[in-house]
């Protein structure tokens, strides 16, 4: 907790940008160690205020990691320190995970101003939101100007993670994510920018035209869709430009503040559920129920009358 010498030392080092302290801090949070709460409470709030958390989501294979690599290059040209959190699903059977997003970002491997962290979902999306959100703040506190959150976005639950971001780009490519393209109406609920990647591939033009129909305002249509060839870096400077412009807008019109408030609530709820769950598990061991019906038994457990539902 606060005043814990180990936590204080870790905080001092990570605020100075020390790579190991930063990495340790993220592990403490990810493993939900008791020191995590005090650590997170001690982070530099000004830096957290100033960071841009950029969500990159889209179907597997669309080029998110490659695009992340290209964005890193563009951000480093502007001398910004960058954080990347690349999230992939844990195997539901073994609980293990194979995390390979780094492969596409290896050209930055020796640049300590580029902080890459791979994370597995560990089967609990709520908890993941909490750890990913906390990891983004730790990276921000270490001096990152931008933190990119890469997630595979196909279902609604993965989209939850996107809500942690200040601004989200949906990455599509010809032939990838036809299911996402089918839910065109819903796209704007999760994405601020649409990236048509693999613009060098057949079908990209058609995809771009299709995506254009998502926007009714011609100005938005112009500004919210970007075409890129991530592995060549084409279109990435423009994309980054749009990202920063939008960030500026969101900061001045209160949108960013509103989103952070929402993600604060989401994360707080996730933590509350995690904490209550642990308590309930303990309670379960010693409780004798009058009801044999799980739903009613649950009501008994949380001392609520079943009638209010």
């Amino acid at each position: 907790m606060k005043g814990d010498p180990t936590v204080d030392r870790l905080l001092r080092h990570l605020h100075g940008g020390d790579p190991r302290a930063l990495a340790r801090a993220i592990t403490l949070v990810e493993d939900q160690q008791p020191e995590a709460a005090g650590l997170l409470a001690g982070l530099d709030q000004k830096r957290i205020e100033d960071v841009l958390v950029l969500g990159l989501t889209g179907p597997p294979g669309a080029g998110k990691s490659t695009l992340t690599g290209a964005l890193i290059t563009a951000l480093r040209k502007q001398k910004y320190r960058v954080g990347i959190i690349a999230i992939d699903p844990s195997s539901p059977i073994s609980g293990g995970a194979l995390l390979g997003d780094r492969i596409r970002m290896m050209e930055h491997a020796l640049d300590w101003e580029v902080v890459v962290r791979s994370m597995a979902t560990r089967g609990r999306l709520g908890g993941l939101c909490a750890s990913a959100g906390a990891a983004a703040r730790i990276m921000a506190a270490s001096g990152c100007r931008v933190v990119i959150l890469e997630t595979v976005g196909i279902g609604q639950s993965e989209m939850d993670i996107v809500r942690l971001a200040d601004l989200t780009a949906l990455v599509l490519a010809p032939g990838f994510g036809d299911d996402i393209q089918a839910m065109k109406a819903g796209i704007l609920e999760v994405a601020d920018l649409l990236v048509v990647n693999k613009a060098d591939q057949p079908g990209a033009g058609k995809l771009q035209l299709e995506m254009a129909t998502v926007f009714t305002d011609p100005k938005e249509r112009e500004e919210r869709i970007c075409a890129t060839v991530a592995n060549e870096g084409t279109g990435v400077a423009i994309l980054l430009d749009r990202i920063f412009t939008l960030e500026g807008e969101f900061r001045s019109n209160g949108q960013l503040h509103a989103r952070r408030k929402r993600s604060f609530q989401l994360e707080t709820l996730d933590w509350a559920v995690e904490i209550v769950k642990a308590d309930l598990r303990e309670k379960l061991k010693t409780t004798t129920f009058t009801s044999t019906e799980p739903r009613q038994a649950a009501m008994e457990m949380v001392s609520r009358s079943g009638e209010c539902i």
Partner: peptide, 13 residues
Amino acid sequence: ALRDAGFEVIYTG
């Protein structure tokens, strides 16, 4: 094999 044994494996290529 390590993934299937429950490890989180970062593969760097």
